[in-house]
């Protein structure tokens, strides 16, 4: 399989979301927000894109009365992200 850079991961924020989800079972909206230092709206847009591509799964829950939306990575997302990493490494190695 030829590794290619994934267009969806052009964005720094989308790649950040995926990185966090790779090493954590679940991450919630506020954790992502402080981790990536983005505004609510910006983060929500990128999450939506990833969700539409079936890379992440959204779980809506509550802690007391506050909503707590958490995210997990899907198998599809994991594979796509790993391939993207391979492609990045390939660029570095080929030019080395």
């Amino acid at each position: 399989m030829i590794e290619q850079l994934n267009k969806l991961f052009d964005s720094r924020i989308r790649i950040g979301i995926m990185s966090a989800l790779m090493v954590n079972e679940t991450v919630n909206f506020n954790e992502l927000k402080s981790l990536l230092d983005v505004t609510d709206g910006n983060l929500a847009t990128h999450l939506k894109t990833l969700e539409e591509n079936n890379y992440i799964k959204v779980h809506k829950g509550f802690i007391g009365k506050k909503t707590n939306t958490t995210y997990t990575i899907t198998k599809v997302g994991e594979t796509a992200f790993k391939n993207h990493l391979k492609a990045l490494e390939k660029i570095i190695n080929d030019l080395g």
Partner: peptide
């Protein structure tokens, strides 16, 4: 960047 985010998160 990816490594840093994985670490921090």
């Amino acid at each position: 960047d990816i490594h840093g985010i994985m670490e921090r998160s």
